[in-house]
Nucleic acid binder design. Sequence first.
DNA 1: CCAGTGATGTTGACGCGTCACTCATTCCGC
DNA 2: GCGGAATGAGTGACGCGTCAACATCACTGG
Lengths: 154, 154
Amino acid sequence: MGDTRWLDEREARAWRGMIGLQQRLTAVLERQLMQEAGLSGAEYTLLVPLSEAPGGVLRARDLGRVVGWERSRVSHQVTRMEKRGMVAREECGEDARGSMVRLTDAGRMAIAAAAPAHVVAVRRHFLGALTGTELDVIGAALDRVLERLPDNDG
Amino acid sequence: MGDTRWLDEREARAWRGMIGLQQRLTAVLERQLMQEAGLSGAEYTLLVPLSEAPGGVLRARDLGRVVGWERSRVSHQVTRMEKRGMVAREECGEDARGSMVRLTDAGRMAIAAAAPAHVVAVRRHFLGALTGTELDVIGAALDRVLERLPDNDG
DNA sequence: CCAGTGATGTTGACGCGTCACTCATTCCGC
DNA sequence: GCGGAATGAGTGACGCGTCAACATCACTGG
């Protein structure tokens, strides 16, 4: 069983780049978000679709679909944000199983204050370091990788 | 203050690709690692440099440097792995402040069993979807982004 | 030698994410 | 209708990661 084909130079570089970036880039951006706006990455992620939804209300199921999270993850995060007053739970009229998540005024102010600086940071730390060609190549390549990934198992 | 320059089509695509991949790719790989080898991603990360170190021993400081983790993160993870018997702490002769981390036999067997399948999975889900040109472009681009990132603030 | 500074490591609190489980409700074949 | 599958949501346990605080030890200038 000693016939494993390890990564060559070129493969290792691209792979290390992906892993290293996943670690450091998100760390830098989340730190900035926390310092400048007092928001965690998870909070920002949920606040964006909520702020764009009509009335600032989304069903928990749909919120999860939009951001690609599972039910329990959404539920935990909404619980935490409810305690901080960014969001409120309401009953769902159409389906008694459902749960509605409503953006509070405090939540709306938080996301409005955080978003512009976050976009600047994304440009500053990621997009700004890339050429137009690289943007296209990376966009196309990563889309392809995403499509090939198994949905929820192997 | 309504003059924020949002992301255009091309930028958004590359950015969404990075974020989406960071989420799903690591999730897929960690699930596979856990199911096939009973190892978490964090465990795998520490076991690799330990298994390559002479004698299977590294100082905690150096272990942290190699994987790019802070002290407390290393300490917490070593504590968890110590409880599972993959690793053992020892005193450091050269520097009484230091702490040595030694790979146990169980730890060595775990990483030897896990590594080949993990490499296959990385190729299957990431590298295999990319052309040689894309590998080079991505490797070079992400290296450049990494170099421009602030070290710990900024 | 000694005080101050910096490096190393550990710990506790807290937020985040997954898994396994439970509960209520809706859907669907019959 | 009815009973079982499927769906939507919440919970507790546990692992992971960061931050702040702390303790210990090394180094350096005087």
